[in-house]
Every structure is written in C-alpha cells, then in structure tokens.
Design a protein around this nucleic acid. Structure first.
Lengths: 194, 194
DNA sequence: CAATTAGCATGACGGTCGTTATGCTAACGG
DNA sequence: CCGTTAGCATAACGACCGTCATGCTAATTG
C-alpha cells in the first residue's frame, strides 16, 4: 500500500549517536546539539525514538549488542599459542588506551551513572554480567577450575576497570601501569599455577 | 565597622548539599530543587558560591577534605591485633554497603564522570591519589616492601572500587562477594606470604 | 544609637530544554 | 498513476535553566 519502513535507518542513527556521545558524554546530553551534529533537526530523534529517555535506552541496548558481537567474534586466546593471560591483559590495556579512548571514557561514565542508580533498564547490568561470563570462559579454557572461573573473572574485570578509571582520572601512568603489571602477573599465576 | 562574615555558614551549606547530592545525584543537579530542599532560595547558592560550576568544585573539594579527615582519624590497623588485611577489606565492604550506600553511589558517579573527562579541577585526582597513598601506608605497616606497597595499594583500591560498581549495577551479590573473598585472600597473601 | 553589611527572598532576564502540530517531498505498493 | 506513508524541516509551546538587580531585615561594630 505504501512506503515501508527502513529498519537500517535506526541503526545508522544509533552508530552516529554513539560516536557523538563518545566525544560529548551522555550525562549532559541535549537533543538540539546532537541533532545539529548529525546534520538533522531534533525531530529525527523524537521520530525514530519516542523521546530522550527512550533514545538513551536504545543507546544502551545498542552498546550492549555491540559488545556482545565483539566478544563473540574474538578469536579465543586458547591455551595454545604461547600467549599467556597476562599478555592479553596488557595488550587490551594498550589497545583500549591508544585506539578506543573516547569510547572507554563513555563506558566508564555510563557505568558510574548506572552504579549510582541514575540509569534504568537492563542493559548495563547485562553488559557487566556478559563480560564476566566471557572472561570466565577464557579462564576455563586456560584450565581454571569451573567453580573458580566466574569468581576470578569478576575480580579481573573489576580490577581492570578500576585501574582504567584511576588512570583516566589521575593520569598517573607509572603508578597505574605498575599495578596493571601486578594484575597481569596475578592472572598468569591463575593459569600457570606456581 | 559592620557585620563580619560567618565562615561556618559555607561549611554547613556544603554538608547539606552533599547530603542532597547523595540522594539525587550530581550529574543532573539543578539549583532550584536543591535550594528548595535546603529550605532557601537559589540566591543562597549563588551568593555563597560564585555559580553552579564553582559550587560543584566546592563540593568536590569538600569531599576531598572529608576523605582526608576520615582516613587520617582511622586507627591504624597495625600488624598486631590479629586483624588481617583481608578482614579489613571484608569489614569495609560490609560497612560501605550497609551504612553509607548513598554516599558510595555518589562517589562512583563522580569518579565515572571524572574518568570520562566531564569534571574539572584537581580534587577527584587528589582523592584517588590520597587513597592509594593511605592504603600503601597500611601495606607498609604490614611488612610489604616499599617498592611494592604503592603498586599493590593501587591494585587493591581499583579492584575494590570495580567490585562495588559491579555489585551496585548488577546486584549479583553471590558472584561479586565471591570475587571480594578472592581479593581479600590475595591481600592476606601479601601480608602473610605463603 | 548609628552605620554598615551579611544574609536572604523576590522576581525578573534571556536562554535552552524536550516535545509536538503542521506541512512538504520523495519513495514505494497496488 | 494513484494513494499512502516514511522521512524530515520548521516553528512554536510551556517549562525549566542559571544568573542577577533590587530591597528588606537583622546582626554586628564603633
């Protein structure tokens, strides 16, 4: 009868929105500057998403799916190949800080707001839970016992995130990267006991 | 010649403001609701502080000083007394979550915003640095070598904060507290090697 | 007591906010 | 080709924002 909806349009918008948020933050988000940066009027935002709150929910869902896709596509750093778990930690650190810093910042802003109870919806909790499960799977592949894998994965993720926050806030590279080395050594000791 | 300023008034206000922020967050702070909650007009805020930005700076400085005072007044959990470092970690966790949860949430919101580069000023970095130094002092008192104390303190703080964020976001008590036990055991292993 | 000023409420200012009614154009289904 | 609707810009709405000029009251000093 008439013109059908284009389901791609919404995803295109979400990618552009996430790019904007990585640069400008999400806490003080305002629709007008966002729309201007996208080259549109604000109506595009309230049309494709019901309103500002739903837009933020959609962004969080988008980030959740994006993380899910990335860790799913990651080559399993299996026990073979000579790459220890500590090397993975160190490589992730270097990559996050060199290649993806605005997004890392955005994620910490989101997780801080979520921890403060200022963001609703299931997506941020799901992201954290999924990350724990993923790292637990890597640990299991390295021979960590099943009952310890999720516990150690949770601790590893928490320490890694905490160190990122410390470094992003203080900029004290020497102190934080020394602590990261200690964390990487600890991770190695889990997979190569003694 | 005339009526002198009362230097206490500003501190009273800051304490009340911090109490309000612990309940309502800082990211979406608006002066009018804050002033109403304090039982005053907004002019009180713009009079004692130059404006909204300076008010937030004053709050961060206030929290910084408050933390400095608290850790300074803490009884040094010295190597004697039978209380291991892991017990201190577990006791802090229980106390934070049972007695001081709104403030813990506020601090994570602030640290997330700071890590995202959305808060300026030296106070948040100073808080993190001071916390690392304080825990490093405790570690040294427990016999941890000087060159390792600050590194291990940074890692301990980061892991502890990361676990708080995880728990506050996911509410997954079993998973997170299991990881906290592992962290406490690790801390014990630092102070009672083997 | 007189002079001065801290402390605060009131009310207004221009600006920005999220949202929405209206109307146009281009794309598609029948 | 006609009817319908997606997609979007425009412009306006009321609400709220941070700020500040004005003026009153009460406390303090000399």
């Amino acid at each position: 009868m008439a013109r059908p909806r284009d389901p791609q349009r919404r995803e295109e918008l979400l990618d552009a929105i996430v790019g904007y948020l990585a640069e400008h933050g999400i806490a003080q988000l305002s629709l007008r500057p966002l729309a201007k940066a996208l080259g549109h009027s604000t109506y595009v935002l309230t049309h494709h998403f019901a309103g500002k709150d739903e837009l933020i929910s959609a962004v969080l869902a988008h980030l959740d799916e994006r993380q899910r896709g990335r860790v799913g596509a990651l080559p399993d750093p299996g026990t073979s190949g000579g790459l220890g778990l500590g090397d993975v930690v160190r490589a992730s650190w270097a990559w996050h800080l060199r290649e993806d810093l605005p997004m890392v910042r955005l994620l910490h802003e989101i997780e801080g707001l979520s921890a403060a109870g200022r963001l609703s919806g299931p997506y941020v909790p799901k992201m954290l839970g999924d990350r724990a499960e993923f790292v637990a799977g890597v640990l299991r592949a390295h021979g960590v016992p099943e009952e310890a894998a999720l516990r150690k994965a949770t601790l590893l993720n928490a320490a890694y995130a905490g160190l990122q926050i410390d470094y992003l806030t203080t900029g004290d590279k020497d102190r934080v990267e020394a602590a990261l080395d200690e964390l990487a050594d600890t991770a190695d000791s889990w997979t190569r006991p003694q």
